[in-house]
């Protein structure tokens, strides 16, 4: 069917996309505004970027967020890959439905629920085991790996299901042991899914406010936490600059991923 040029659905699509992008465009535009009054345009300037970089509190939080995102995304890829393999390749086993439910629940579970429950776990662990370190970045890492692994699992599972079983069987038939099949065949073929999964986990971790607010230790404030307490007080040009950097950074990251693992972009839409 040929798309009609001005079908009602087509108009809705254009309006919907405009709805999605206009606010972001405005933020980016105003980040270059010279005026401190966010809405009055007084001229092009990059002074807010300078102030942003000079804000040591923000920079420290950004560093924390990067560390958390890097480590938790990597952990999420390992866990999510295991879960994806279990669901795509292990057929029926006892408790499959229950496990599937628990793995996938964080995709939709409100963040406040995940945040409070994990915090109570960490507090109880601190009380019970004297050797447990207090809450800090590592508790955020665990919490983030837990909810981002769900996304990785979905992506990996979809990729494995789309992959012919015969390819792995051919490798076994040619003499490869299970470990070698996984290392030389399954893993390389999963590469686009792993890249997409890692990126998604990384971005989601970088973005999380609610869960981190619950589980982070006093010395381990993350970037969204600082941003949140700042924008609660209102709109500020410095945050506009930060938002611009985040938007541009995400785009660069995605473009790089698309370039490194061709096919990764196609995979990035998890089938929910």
């Amino acid at each position: 069917m040929k798309p009609q040029r001005f079908s009602p659905a087509g108009v809705a699509l254009i309006l919907g996309l405009a709805f999605l992008y206009l606010p972001l465009a405005v933020v980016i535009g105003y980040s270059f505004n010279a005026s401190k009054l966010v809405t009055v345009w007084t001229g092009f300037s990059t002074r807010w970027y300078g102030e942003l970089l000079a804000d040591s509190q923000l920079m420290a939080a950004a560093r924390n967020s990067l560390v958390v995102a890097l480590v938790s995304a990597t952990l999420a890829v390992v866990l999510g890959t295991a879960a994806g393999i279990v669901f795509a390749r292990f057929g029926k086993f006892r408790g499959r439905t229950a496990l599937a439910g628990m793995i996938a629940a964080p995709l939709v579970l409100p963040d406040v629920i995940a945040g409070i429950s994990l915090l109570l776990l960490f507090v109880a662990a601190e009380q019970t085991f004297a050797w447990m370190p207090g809450r800090g970045l590592f508790t955020v890492i665990i919490a983030h790996a837990g909810f981002t692994m769900a996304y990785v699992a979905v992506i990996v599972q979809a990729r494995l299901k789309g992959m012919e079983r015969e390819i792995e069987e051919a490798a076994a038939d040619l003499g490869a042991r299970p470990g070698a099949v996984f290392l030389h065949i399954t893993l390389p073929m999963l590469k686009p899914a792993l890249i997409a999964g890692w990126l998604l986990a990384f971005v989601l971790s970088l973005d999380d406010l609610v869960i981190a607010s619950f589980v982070a230790g006093p010395q381990s404030t993350t970037l969204p936490m600082v941003v949140f307490s700042s924008i609660r007080l209102g709109v500020s040009p410095k945050i506009n600059a930060l938002a611009t950097l985040i938007i541009v950074g995400t785009l660069v990251l995605l473009a790089a991923a698309a370039w490194i693992g061709r096919g990764a972009l196609k995979m990035k839409t998890p089938r929910l």
Partner: peptide
């Protein structure tokens, strides 16, 4: 194999 199952990578 019927699909040949060549390793695509």
């Amino acid at each position: 194999f019927q699909s040949y199952a060549l390793f695509p990578h």
